Amino acid sequence: MPTGVAIHDVREQLFDAAERVLLRAGPNALTSRAVTTEAGCAKGVLHRHFADFDAFLADLVRDRIGRMELRGAALRASAGTGSVVGNVSGALAGLFGSVALAIVGLITSRDVLRARLRETSPTGVPLLTEATAMLAAYLTAERERGRIKADADVGTLALTLIGSGHLLFAGREGVPVEDDEVRRVVASVIAGVVRGA
């Protein structure tokens, strides 16, 4: 591996490489060597930017949680447009059709990583907890616009939607979840609270 070659956006390059390894081979294959090989850089590059591999993984998860905050802002901005079922279905497909399932598997398989993430995400499963908050904020915005009933328990609805979405997408190696499947689940969960449904 050549040395002395500048790598631009090292953190992002390493994070993207980790995602590719995670998606291709699962959490057990995710090692510092696998990540740096995938990124096309020397192993020392990772250790120059992170205290250790678990610190790298914790930063990867936190970075992906940060990306979810951007998705959440876009979802909240969609309140009052389209259909509630369509907006929630799109959010779930975007979340679970991405690397999120693999990251949840990574979190649950590594005790040290979970312990580090507890520093910033003290409850729940990191990423899923933030996804639940994202949906709850969207449903609250729809409730404020009158498209969701005023007495709707958006926190419970969001938990139910995330749990249902996770189960719907999990374990489907190579078999995509159809949009209609997602819409049916979402419509069932929120049928009693969407006005005009």
Rank of each mutant, 00 (worst) to 15 (best):
T3F: 07
D153L: 01
L161A: 08
R147Q: 12
H49S: 10
A42R: 14
R118L: 12
R33H: 08
F53W: 00
L127A: 09
A102C: 10
G40S: 00
V88K: 07
A29N: 11
L159R: 12
E130P: 02
V125I: 15
A55D: 15
L157T: 00
A100N: 08
A6N: 08
T132N: 09
G174H: 04
L168T: 04
R62I: 02
R48L: 06
L157I: 03
I107F: 00
G94Q: 02
Q13D: 13
A55E: 14
H49I: 01
T132D: 12
T120H: 08
L22E: 14
G72H: 05
G163K: 05
A136V: 00
N28S: 14
F50A: 02
P126D: 07
N87I: 06
L135M: 14
L92F: 09
E178K: 11
L60I: 00
L23R: 13
P2Y: 11
G171Y: 05
S109N: 10
V185W: 05
L157A: 01
A93W: 03
D179H: 07
A93Y: 04
L128P: 06
L161K: 02
F169L: 14
H8I: 05
R114C: 04
T156P: 10
T81C: 13
R195M: 10
K43A: 15
F15D: 01
K43W: 14
H47V: 04
C41W: 03
Y138F: 13
H8G: 09
I162P: 11
A34P: 01
N87D: 14
L161Y: 01
A197R: 02
F96Q: 08
A6K: 10
I190N: 06
R183D: 05
P176C: 12
T120K: 07
M134A: 13
A131H: 06
I65Y: 02
V182D: 01
V194E: 05
C41I: 15
S109P: 00
T37I: 05
D59K: 04
L30H: 02
R11D: 03
A29D: 04
I65H: 03
